[in-house]
Design a binder for these strands. Structure first.
Lengths: 211, 211
DNA sequence: AATAGACCTTGATCTATATCAAATCTGGAA
DNA sequence: TTCCAGATTTGATATAGATCAAGGTCTATT
């Protein structure tokens, strides 16, 4: 019932419309959840990092494309037995509901980014979020990783942010030029000024002013 | 434990950060779920129509603003007893999970719209979706309502679509000029050519070509 | 070490949509 | 009916980001 499978960068894990025989969770690497329009316009709708769940119990066909962005290892369960388990173990269903609600909140945050943020705010937000999630995985130090690998091409970032890859490139280098981040290699980022980065995201920096 | 409350257009139902004493469901009217940035930029992240659930069990404070867009009647339950009910009745938790997953899918569809669609495609998609949901409520005829009230101001539409109200106005009148829709009063819409409208949304019109 | 292909950067230009600024419409209150 | 405030339309202009077009830079392979 349980098995592991690896995928190389760019490899599809499942296409929208395919039958889903498995559900699973990411063990290592980064995968992307995305939609594509007939004319090729593409939008990532989720970034799947280690511990994230893939697939939807109770649905036989995939609604979105899932692709490996970096080298990915997936831990898979056959969907049917998993659904049975879900019925038998109330705790598990509780857990699934929490995950779904967290993802819903994340999706809604992303809607604000896509609909209303500028290109620079979008890039800053993405870097900040990846730094945060990176730090969650390797606990210890502060609450945000200072140096890490983006594990995304400029094109993948563009697809996530609703921009073109050229704009992504310009904005990343803009943040570097302005001393907010350093680039050590194309995808290796060091955050030079975390407060400044947070400010550049356009998000409420200081959690609301009490009157 | 159960009560009803009405709100007039523009009236806040709850603000982000407020304590949530109730969860509830929309009985009639339209409410909006939205986020606002410090400088006033606003993005709607959900449109709440009759039968939609409001609030999140297991969370004590609201994550988003909820406002009545039209006259709204809300059926409220105290949150704590509701959460207890959720623990005792497994069927209810099952239902909540399904609703959360459906909303997640809807949010992800909206991400494609916000990130990649043109203004005209955005407006067409919104009109199409409202027509669909309108038809769901009053079943009978075809699968899509032909004539209905948008129940949203141009500004509310703009906040939902990530546009300005001027652009919304121009695009709505563009669709009218091109014979896709008729306007009977500012918010009353008649769909003149439903196939054409669907095409204008940019979505896969004919459900994918088998090879 | 040379080559190739996938990424990435940079520059010039274009355009969809925002922004600014008036009208104009509309439905309800007096 | 007349008036008014909010909602909508319409026009002129500005601009962020897209698009088009080269080059440059890694990294793996031979």
């Amino acid at each position: 019932m349980k098995s592991y499978k690896s995928y190389s960068p760019g490899e599809p894990i499942i296409w929208a419309g395919d039958e889903m025989r498995y559900v699973g969770s990411i063990v290592s690497g980064v995968a992307s959840l995305s939609q594509t329009m007939e004319d090729g316009r593409k939008q990532m709708v989720g970034l799947l990092l280690p511990s994230d769940f893939v697939g939807r119990p109770g649905r036989s066909h995939a609604a979105f494309d899932v692709e490996a962005t970096s080298e990915v290892t997936l831990c898979r369960f056959e969907r049917r037995p998993f659904e049975k388990l879900l019925n038998d173990v109330p705790h598990l269903r509780q857990r699934m509901l929490e995950m779904a609600l967290d993802e819903l909140d994340a999706a809604r945050e992303w809607m604000l980014l896509l609909g209303r943020k500028t290109a620079r705010e979008k890039i800053s937000s993405l870097i900040y979020i990846i730094a945060q999630r990176e730090a969650d995985l390797k606990p210890g130090n502060g609450s945000v990783a200072v140096e890490f690998d983006l594990k995304l091409t400029r094109e993948a970032m563009a697809d996530y942010l609703g921009l073109t890859l050229e704009t992504v490139s310009r904005q990343v280098n803009g943040l570097k030029k302005d001393g907010v981040i350093d680039l050590l290699g194309k995808r290796q980022v060091r955050i030079r000024d975390i407060a400044r980065l947070l400010q550049e995201t356009g998000d409420d920096a200081d959690g609301g002013m009490p009157v």
